[in-house]
């Protein structure tokens, strides 16, 4: 166990030394990896913010349940009881009087409402399901429409579907972009490691002849690839944070112009760690491919 630990810590130290031995080349590689990871990471953060903004928009993912005009208090209480029993729903009752009052407060409608002989509005419930997937919303709407004394159920499903389709398209484009840049990262690491193997050909040859296992020879290269990827990931997280910091002011001003308060959500420490881990994994993969191919000539 201690020999295993000694060899791993020595390989890790060797990987650090190799990174520090050529600072300029290391810096350039880290920049390439950092930028390659920044683009999908930034895209992810923007999509996440967009999703948040969309879900906060008024009326989105709410279901309006309008009752029949003649629904009695008892029948309203019956609907309330059914909503209470249903799981994953929050709801609010809007009595027809309150609805009329709101309509009267609307500048363009005040005159029309005043001319009406009686209140034409029904009692209503505003229902917000926990599951906001379009399919789930549609299913809930259909179920609510079947309840007694429910005259009409309104879900702006077209808007929800369009927004969801846009998000799905964004996620797909992001996945493709991430795949492309991941391949780029693997290629960068592959090439860096290939050059290192060439530069260390004498050492590898001697080490093999005096009893080094494949694992002993490969280990420092794996650590190097993983370290380079992890540092690139952290750099990407830093760039994303910096970018969001620069955008925060203008986005806040824009939101204020629309009468809303919205602040961009920055990635958390866990997000940065995931980015670093992803970079490390891709770096390790690049190193693994490179070492496997490059070491064949020593067999």
């Amino acid at each position: 166990m201690s020999a295993w630990l000694t060899q791993h810590s020595a390989a890790l130290a060797a990987a650090f030394r190799r990174l520090l031995a050529a600072p300029m080349s290391t810096l350039l590689s880290l920049l390439v990896i950092g930028i390659a990871l920044t683009l999908p990471a930034f895209g992810y953060v923007l999509l996440d913010n967009l999703r948040e903004l969309g879900s906060r928009a008024s009326g989105v993912k709410q279901i309006s349940v309008f009752l029949e005009l003649g629904a009695s208090r008892k029948e309203v209480a019956e609907i309330e009881s059914r909503l209470r029993q249903a799981s994953g729903l929050t709801w609010r009752f809007v009595p027809r009087e309150e609805a009329l009052k709101r309509l009267q407060q609307t500048e363009e409608m005040a005159e029309i409402v005043a001319s009406l002989p009686r209140n034409p509005l029904p009692d209503a419930f505003i229902v917000e399901p926990a599951d906001t997937e379009p399919a789930a919303l549609e299913a809930i709407s259909k179920e609510l429409a079947g309840w007694p004394k429910v005259a009409h159920v309104q879900l702006d499903s077209a808007w929800v579907k369009r927004f969801d389709a846009f998000l799905r398209l964004g996620r797909l484009a992001l996945a493709m972009l991430a795949g492309l840049f991941a391949a780029g990262l693997v290629a960068v690491t592959f090439n860096t490691i290939r050059l290192q193997v060439m530069a260390r050909a004498a050492e590898i040859e001697v080490a093999r002849m005096i009893g080094a296992t494949d694992a002993f020879i490969r280990r420092p290269f794996y650590y190097f690839g993983a370290l380079q990827g992890a540092l690139g990931g952290l750099l990407a997280a830093g760039i994303v944070l910096g970018g969001l910091h620069l955008l925060a002011g203008p986005v806040g001003e824009l939101a204020a112009l629309y009468g809303a308060a919205f602040a961009l959500k920055a990635p958390t420490a866990i997000g940065a760690a995931v980015l670093a881990a992803g970079g490390a994994l891709l770096g390790w993969l690049g190193a693994q491919l490179s070492v496997s191919l490059s070491l064949r000539k020593f067999d």
């Binding site: 201690s2 020999a3 295993w4 000694t6 060899q7 020595a10 001697v206 080490a207 005096i210 009893g211 080094a212 296992t213 002993f216």
Partner: peptide, 11 residues
């Protein structure tokens, strides 16, 4: 030191 590192001896 190289053969000793291969054998996993402490530094």
């Amino acid at each position: 030191l190289l053969p000793l590192q291969i054998a996993g001896l402490s530094r």
